[in-house]
Amino acid sequence: MGRYVARRLLQMIPVVIGTTFIIYALVWALPGDPFAGRCGARPCPAAYVADMTAKYNLDDPLPLAYIQYLGNLLRGDFGETFQGLSVGEELLRAYPTTVKLALVAIAFEIIIGIGAGILAGLRRGSFIDNLVLVSTLVVVSIPVFVIGSVLQLFLGMRWGIFPATVGGDASLYNLILPGFVLASLSLAYVARLTRTSLAENRRADYVRTAVAKGLPQRRVIGIHTMRNSLIPVVTFIGADFGALLGGAIVTEGIFNVPGVGNLIFRSITTRDGVMVTGAVTVLVLVFLLVNLLVDLIYGWLDPRISHG
């Protein structure tokens, strides 16, 4: 087990380098002058452009600039934003909020998504099954920004049940509405995956065997079927957690959550390349670690897969 984890950690190194290089190249290759538009209707002072170009090594060829950046990263130095703030500190501030938001969303996925999936999967073709199918479908087909705006309008502005936005106070209660909106899309996958997986496993040989052995129905479903059915679901939720961390751009924008998605999107529009690469690098790292964790749980859920 320890060796497996060590090997996986080693494997992350090329992945992190590969991903960050792609992002770094994309961000600094953004068309045009990264300082255009920073000075209103006129070009920026030449001295300013020169200073910034030197500061971010923009004159060097791309691979060289990237290596310098990577070197700084290894020393724990994420660089500075145009505003002169430490990227590292900004990330430390934004991540907890986003993680919290993602956890709230995951909670919704688990409770509602898996719950609905199990109900539907156990009674295929029933009213509940159809209800789950149709409702998840409706949710999938509506863009997040519409769901977000509508819920914000009614629950936040009209009825005042939840705060309309989150702002600086990222308490659990404030995050319920954006958390639900964020989860809405994945809810549908989780429900459908659970349903499909459960239905398939119920016909699997080992379940037949268990039933044939005379094990009680509850035990068969509760232990054997459920455990195996949840494997793809766990894979999905684990992957989704990583995606939610950086994919909450729209939701964080609508509900003004000061998280990573918000930070990255603002940085893309203001061309703050250091911020974008820094944030995405951390995103990739977190994501890979989460995945490792998922794989470990995977092995635990399905004894046929061993990490010897």
Partner: peptide
């Protein structure tokens, strides 16, 4: 799997934004 991870690790919407902002 490592190759997959490289692309998997970047959230889809975010990646699409960066790609489309670049091109």
């Amino acid at each position: 799997s490592r190759f997959t991870d490289m692309f998997f690790a970047v959230p889809m919407l975010l990646g699409a934004i960066i790609v489309l902002a670049t091109f």
